[in-house]
């Protein structure tokens, strides 16, 4: 799986001499260890192949529709649910939950990482509890959260937040601690204030780690969402699927799965796109 297509790179070198094309070009075969040039829309190949496999298996009867609905049935179901408004409605409420949980998780995770990364006291206080939280599966906390907050939105958003802040914290903290000491020395010699040091050195230096955490966090937000919506909900994609299970509507269940999959893929692509723009100063294998 690869990131969204690059838009800011010309396909042809702009200053290439056109007569070069007609000249002989013989060069020694050098071994290339990098993955080579990035190609547009290449990221669609994997998901496309999966879709093709599913379609062919269904069409040839290899896959029983009672086990897994045919792709066209799922598309038709999507059409029906869109027409009566149920899909949009459930999607909106799911997206709202995931979005809120993601937002709070990012804020909490990034703040804790800064506090813990920039002061020894902060690290002593924060890092241990976060590692403990990390060891406890998100699911295990749900009974307690239900007792404390009931089964309404607060509990759902909180569950997602708790799942999201951990990877944000871990990766941002690692990125921050990985900042080269030489840059800290430099900041000292040019007389940066503490605030300017954080703004000019710490935050940009920790950004690659933060984005890595963000990708885990976005995926994690959707995963937590599925859990909370299938346990206690009266709306949302998970609820829609849970209801379909009681009526044996495989097509709606598969549609729900497809929606989760698409949401995950699209949000990951979005994060990568933002990452590429924000970290354009980096020169890496990703290209």
């Amino acid at each position: 799986m690869s990131a969204a297509p690059v838009l800011d790179r010309p396909a042809v070198e702009p200053h290439l001499d056109p007569t070069l094309a007609t000249r002989e070009d013989i060069r020694p075969a050098g071994r290339r260890l990098g993955p080579g040039r990035r190609r547009r829309l290449a990221w669609l190949l994997g998901p496309g192949a999966l879709l093709a496999l599913w379609t062919i298996s269904s069409a040839t009867g290899l896959l029983d529709p009672r086990i897994l609905s045919e792709p066209w049935t799922v598309v038709a179901t999507a059409g029906e649910l869109l027409a009566d408004g149920r899909l949009q409605e459930n999607l909106a409420i799911s997206a709202q939950r995931a979005g809120l949980g993601l937002f709070f998780g990012i804020v909490v995770g990034a703040l804790l990482a800064l506090l813990s990364g920039l002061s020894r006291v902060g690290e002593a206080l924060i890092d241990g509890p976060v590692q403990i939280k990390r060891a406890i599966p998100g699911l295990a906390l749900i009974p307690l959260l239900i007792l404390w907050f009931g089964i309404d939105e607060t509990m759902k958003v909180l569950t997602i937040t708790l799942g999201v802040f951990v990877p944000i914290y871990l990766q941002t903290h690692a990125g921050l601690r990985g900042i080269d000491l030489r840059y800290v020395e430099l900041a000292q010699t040019v007389g940066l204030s503490r605030a300017a040091f954080i703004r000019k050195v710490v935050l940009p230096g920790a950004l690659p780690g933060f984005f890595l955490g963000l990708r885990f966090a976005v995926t994690g937000a959707w995963v937590s969402l599925v859990v909370v919506e299938q346990i206690n909900a009266t709306s949302g994609i998970g609820y829609m699927m849970e209801l379909a299970r009681t009526y044996g509507q495989t097509n709606i269940i598969v549609l729900g799965l497809a929606v989760y999959g698409i949401l995950g893929l699209v949000s990951d692509g979005a994060v990568r796109l933002i990452e590429r723009k924000a970290l354009s100063w980096q020169r890496t294998l990703a290209g």
């Binding site: 030489r182 840059y183 020395e185 430099l186 900041a187 040019v190 007389g191 940066l192 300017a196 000019k200 050195v201 940009p204 230096g205 950004l207 970290l279 100063w281 980096q282």
Partner: peptide, 20 residues
Amino acid sequence: VFQDSRLLPWDTVLGNVTLG
């Protein structure tokens, strides 16, 4: 001035010169 140029890789040339 250090042996390595010690430019912040995430800042432009101008941003590095105006640092601080």
